[in-house]
Amino acid sequence: MQPTLIELQRQITALAPMQKPTDQQGFVTLGAERADAALGSALARGALHEMFAAQAADAAALTGFCAGLAQCISGDAGRIVWIRQGFSETEAGPLFMPGLAALGLDPAHIIHVRARRPEDGLRAALEAVRCAALGAVLIELWGMPRSLDLTATRRLALAAEASGTTPLLMRLAAEPGPSVAQTRWQVAAAPSRALAANAPGRPAFDITLLRNRAGASGQRWHLEWDHERKRFRHAATVSGSVAAVPDKRPVPAPVERLARTG
């Protein structure tokens, strides 16, 4: 698209009455048919959803998936509060706005909060989730903080129910614990569909639905983010073939924690 066209489109978006995309009132659709069909009413707005990175090294995949999901939730004009713990920044690197812009998420809509301690992050999250004018609130927590217990998640869920704002709890280096989350997901990076000359393609994710209070869980999808449509799609269905896997692909190591080196 021409830059002027993009600019015009942005102005139209700004003028249009702010509405959360109503593909199905109250529910978020990912855009990938099979996944949406299986999810049904699982991905509700105004409910707490919990996303786990499969391994700490999948931090960027988690960021990408949640950036996409936040767009599915809040649409073009919705604003997003993104709360990150200081430790995540040292470990996985600070968020890079041009990269999020490349995924279609307008950085001008992001309000970034850096929390020193997990309890600060949860406190900020609660404050943000109570604000009905936001689209989504992303809370990224590292490890298994003691302050993130059943009560804390229930508070978030109740605030979300009252305001209609959707909190996404992003967990890194963590095991699922007690929580009242509506759904619980595991996100891992997946090989992308190669472009010409074996170049890496669009962001691809290996998504597992670990828990679903509204239906069956355990499904696993291989999704790809389409930043033009601002929706996910099944990676395999588009080209008709599964992404090419290199022949010398080694067996994945059983446990691979992101080691901290000097």
Binding site: M1, I6, A60, G99, L100, A101, P203
Partner: peptide, 18 residues
């Protein structure tokens, strides 16, 4: 501020974490 949004690139050209 107006950010330069993704033109129709085949893939994102910049990382999400830097």
């Amino acid at each position: 501020t107006h950010w330069q949004m993704a033109p129709a690139d085949a893939r994102p050209m910049r990382p999400v974490h830097l």
